[in-house]
């Protein structure tokens, strides 16, 4: 089961530039929450703060309180163990180029010291099924390189890879921006199924996508969370003028 996420007074910086200003948000478990906003508004930075990926960028830092389930992300837990609990899918599909499909999915387990071959086989199969990729690759997954798949397949492979370590939360940073409409449709369909088991946070620049997949939506502007509510509400009767301007296409 997924767990909820509670964020209080989260601030983030790139060097001296502040990218996030005092974010407070509570994300429901086992639902899909979308984060929208014009480019440069801090929406990617926000999700990258949730699993402390933000700090892998030189000079970047973050401060505040983030609780994922019972885990206090910025206090008392190492960044590495946080990331093991939280899966992440990136903008551009990024399978490990030198590994086979199977090794890609198993990589999170292997690199973290999991050695049980039989269990690994099961988990790989299950993860590929979750990602709706199993039927397409089950015969070639040991021979074919992950880089040899199509863009959409690569992204589903990355989802399978993230799911293999059995995270409680799945963060998706514009997972469809590099994909064609058909692959995008497949990924969206996947999100419906995955939220049965995981809490999903998806960053998207595509408002239609947000309205299709997410129950809740947060609107970011200039590093601030302007509005956070049920998706229908955001898209039909937003309470903030800036949100309305954005969703009606008046800027961004």
């Amino acid at each position: 089961m997924g767990v909820g996420i509670k964020v209080e007074h989260l601030n983030a910086w790139f060097g001296k530039t502040q990218a996030l200003h005092d974010i407070n948000i509570a994300i429901a478990s086992n639902h899909c929450t979308a984060v929208i906003g014009p480019s440069g508004c801090g929406k990617s930075t926000f999700v990258r703060c949730l699993n402390r990926m933000h700090e892998t960028i030189p000079d970047a830092k973050a401060a505040g309180k983030v609780e994922i389930g019972e885990m206090d992300v910025y206090n008392g837990t190492s960044a590495v163990s946080i990331r093991r609990r939280i899966g992440m899918v990136f903008q551009k599909p990024n399978p490990f180029p030198t590994m086979s499909i199977y090794d890609n999915v198993a990589s999170g387990l292997k690199l973290n010291g999991f050695r049980d071959r039989k269990r690994t086989d099961e988990i790989v199969e299950r993860s590929l099924k979750y990602a709706a990729l199993w039927e397409e690759v089950k015969d070639t997954m040991h021979k074919k390189s992950g880089a040899g798949l199509s863009g959409g397949q690569q992204q589903r492979l990355c989802i399978a890879r993230a799911l293999a370590v059995e995270p409680q939360v799945l963060l998706m940073d514009e997972p469809c921006s590099a994909l064609d409409p058909i692959s995008t449709g497949k990924i969206e369909e996947l999100i419906f199924q995955l939220k049965e088991k995981f809490t999903i946070v998806i960053v998207t620049h595509n408002m239609q996508q947000a309205s299709r997949v997410a129950e809740f939506t947060g609107f970011f502007l200039l590093g601030k969370l302007i509005e956070f509510d049920k998706t229908e509400k955001i898209f039909t009767t937003p309470s903030d003028k800036r949100t309305e301007d954005y969703i009606t296409g008046r800027f961004g």
């Binding site: 909820g4 429901a28 389930g69 419906f192 049920k230």
Partner: peptide
Amino acid sequence: MANHALGAPHVSGP
């Protein structure tokens, strides 16, 4: 599991 349910009504999605 302590979920921060946010008082979220069960949303009707597809």
